[in-house]
Amino acid sequence: MYNVSDSYKTFIKKPSRSFECRITLGNRVFNNSDIIQIVPTVVQASDRFSIGNTVSQSIDITLKNDGAAYASVGEIKVEIGLKINNSIEYIPFGTFNIDDVSKTDYTVKLTCYDNMVKFETGYFSKLGDNPTLQQVVNELASITGVEFTGTLPNYTVTKLEGYTCREVLAYVASVCGGNAYITRDNKFTIIYPHEVDCTITADNYFSTGYKLEDQAYKIGMITCQNKSNSNNDSSESDDYDSVNDKNTISVGALSSDSMELTFENPWVTQSILNDIYNKLKNFSYLGYTLKWQGDLSLDPLDIITVIDKIM
């Protein structure tokens, strides 16, 4: 969740809000008078919790056609501000890479993607056979030109060949028990579910379409398909079970109120899987679908609180 002022937290929940968009292309700045439409999209791999995803964001921006060139600029910075009395508090969306430009006589539509698109390139490692996870991430940053932010577990892994940088990043994310994401300041990081200070009440959501699931999502077992990696750590405790397939390892146990989380990662040993399980075993949530006002400061995997309307 992006850090905002107390005034923002108050005004974003008002029934009527007013926003100002600010888009920067090179040395040009556009505002509401120049912008026709902005449509952001966050592409999630699943509608349920999963790990090892490389979350991608795109944005379609339609501007008035002023006859200038756009594709040559390459990047576009997007900010959306909430009007608070006589001031505007801007929230950065990030800097996006222009992928496509389509024009009419009156409009220009820009289709743009965040820095995750820079990971769609081959991963040809110059590291040894057993690099550390930190060395792999440093090499990804060097290849893509995208800076990493965050901390990593102290794991030694095996050299990978024949993959894209995005596929390797997915393995980095899942071995950490999280997902990869491009931050608002255009760096890549590993994110995890975490609770933030945001509460949605009946004053903020639309009752039409509100749907609550019957059962909470709770992780009981985690299973990893680790392909050719059969040299699993044998120091597992009696609380952990491994299935018979030498290329598949598991931890935990299913029950009537828990579910199995599955993923693939050639780096994962039993010891690493135990670490992932210990990170996630207490994580649970009750799924729901609703339409609400929205809050520009929220990020993927932010855990918020929803208070139902009392009938």
Rank of each mutant, 00 (worst) to 15 (best):
D257I: 13
I200F: 07
I190W: 12
C224F: 01
G209C: 02
A202G: 13
N244D: 15
I200W: 00
S256G: 13
K246N: 10
S237H: 04
E236A: 10
W267I: 09
Y205G: 01
T262N: 11
N244T: 08
N265W: 09
V243R: 06
G220Y: 03
S207G: 03
T208A: 13
T183F: 06
S228G: 12
K218G: 06
F188P: 15
I182H: 00
Y210P: 02
L261K: 02
S235A: 11
Y205P: 00
A216Q: 08
L212R: 03
P193I: 09
N186H: 00
I222M: 08
P266S: 02
P266I: 03
I222H: 10
V243H: 01
I222A: 03
N231M: 12
E213A: 07
S250A: 08
K227N: 13
D233H: 09
E213V: 04
L254Y: 00
N231R: 15
N231Y: 12
E195Q: 14
G209A: 02
E260I: 02
T208Y: 05
M221Y: 10
E264V: 06
V243P: 04
N265E: 01
K227E: 13
Y181G: 02
L212N: 03
S237D: 09
Y181Q: 03
N244V: 13
K211F: 02
T201I: 00
S228D: 14
G252E: 02
Q215F: 11
K246E: 13
C198M: 09
N232F: 12
F206I: 15
Y192E: 02
V243E: 07
S242E: 08
S235V: 01
H194T: 15
N226Y: 04
I182G: 05
A253E: 15
P193H: 12
S255W: 10
K187Y: 09
A216G: 01
P266A: 00
D239A: 13
S230V: 15
G209I: 01
E260R: 03
D238V: 15
N231C: 11
N244A: 14
E260F: 06
S256I: 09
N232H: 14
M221H: 06
D241K: 14
D203V: 04
A202Q: 12
Q225M: 10
T199W: 11
S258N: 15
T208Q: 05
N247C: 06
E213H: 05
N229C: 11
S230E: 14
E213W: 00
H194D: 15
N247A: 07
G220W: 01
D185P: 07
D239T: 09
V196D: 11
Y210F: 04
D241Y: 10
V251E: 07
D185A: 03
L212W: 06
A180T: 02
D245I: 07
T201S: 05
P193A: 05
